[in-house]
Amino acid sequence: MDARKIIGWNLRKLRVEKGLSQERLALEAHIDRAYVGRVERGKENVTVATLEALAQVLDVPVGALFVEPPPNSPTPPALPAGRRTRR
């Protein structure tokens, strides 16, 4: 798995674990939502500054985005569709 795919896999996994949509992650990291989607699909070469911003929003060290997933790991699941209920 190449570095872009590893970063994308980890980004989606961590984002879903935190319960954040791509839109919310992008908003809090001050980047475009479509860019987050491309990063998750491994289509973008991400800068260190962008990785830092994403890691900060996810409250993880930048290195967490570089952890290679176990062999044959499925793509992390998506968040359930629809809006979250208000508390």
Results as ranks from 00 to 15, higher is better:
1 M>L: 14
1 M>Q: 10
1 M>R: 11
4 R>W: 01
4 R>K: 10
7 I>R: 00
8 G>N: 03
9 W>L: 10
9 W>A: 02
10 N>D: 11
11 L>K: 02
11 L>V: 04
12 R>Y: 08
13 K>W: 05
15 R>G: 12
15 R>Q: 11
17 E>P: 05
17 E>L: 15
23 E>F: 10
25 L>I: 08
26 A>I: 09
26 A>R: 06
27 L>N: 08
28 E>K: 11
29 A>M: 07
29 A>W: 00
30 H>T: 07
31 I>W: 01
35 Y>S: 01
35 Y>P: 02
39 V>H: 01
39 V>N: 01
40 E>M: 03
41 R>C: 04
41 R>G: 02
42 G>K: 07
42 G>E: 05
43 K>A: 15
43 K>N: 13
44 E>C: 06
44 E>S: 10
45 N>F: 06
51 L>I: 03
51 L>C: 13
51 L>K: 03
52 E>N: 07
56 Q>Y: 07
56 Q>I: 04
57 V>E: 10
58 L>K: 04
62 V>E: 09
62 V>Q: 06
63 G>A: 15
64 A>L: 04
65 L>P: 03
67 V>R: 13
67 V>C: 05
67 V>T: 13
69 P>M: 09
71 P>S: 14
71 P>E: 14
71 P>N: 09
71 P>F: 05
72 N>W: 03
72 N>F: 14
73 S>H: 07
73 S>V: 09
73 S>A: 15
73 S>L: 09
73 S>Y: 11
74 P>T: 10
74 P>Q: 14
75 T>E: 15
75 T>M: 15
75 T>G: 02
75 T>Y: 07
76 P>D: 10
77 P>Q: 07
77 P>M: 05
79 L>Y: 10
82 G>H: 12
82 G>E: 07
82 G>I: 13
82 G>M: 08
83 R>S: 15
83 R>A: 14
84 R>H: 08
84 R>C: 02
84 R>K: 15
86 R>W: 10
